[in-house]
């Protein structure tokens, strides 16, 4: 558990073991920002739940509780019916449009 913010350890996903930018809560904030930048391409979003889980939300209001990023991509695929593909031309162009 993080002694500063009281968050129990997250389920280990390799992406949570990169670099430390302060407390677990602060780290999760940056992670959520990065995930939401990408999810917003398909009008989905994700938010923190109790500092240990995440809630993935569809544009129609469907929700799914996910524990880590690997599970999030799986649930997103189930909810959308197809994966979010970073090699897809339309996805690349949409992302590029946000980074002039």
């Amino acid at each position: 558990m993080c002694g500063l913010c009281g968050i129990f350890g997250e389920r280990t996903h390799w992406s949570t073991q990169g670099v430390s930018r302060g407390t677990s809560r602060r780290q999760r904030f940056f992670r959520l920002q990065a995930i939401n930048r990408v999810l917003s391409l398909v009008h989905y979003s994700i938010r923190d739940f109790s500092g240990t889980d995440y809630v993935l939300c569809s544009p129609t209001g469907a929700q799914s509780m996910v524990r880590e990023m690997g599970q999030m991509w799986q649930d997103l695929e189930k909810m959308r019916g197809r994966p979010l593909d970073p090699l897809d031309e339309a996805t690349l162009q949409a992302m590029q449009g946000r980074n002039p």
Binding site: S15, G18, R31, A34, G70, W73, E77
Partner: peptide
């Protein structure tokens, strides 16, 4: 590079491909 952006990109890429 930004670690969080890299983590999101690579995990998304590996999920799809």
């Amino acid at each position: 590079v930004d670690w969080e952006s890299f983590g999101v990109w690579l995990s998304m890429l590996l999920h799809a491909h």
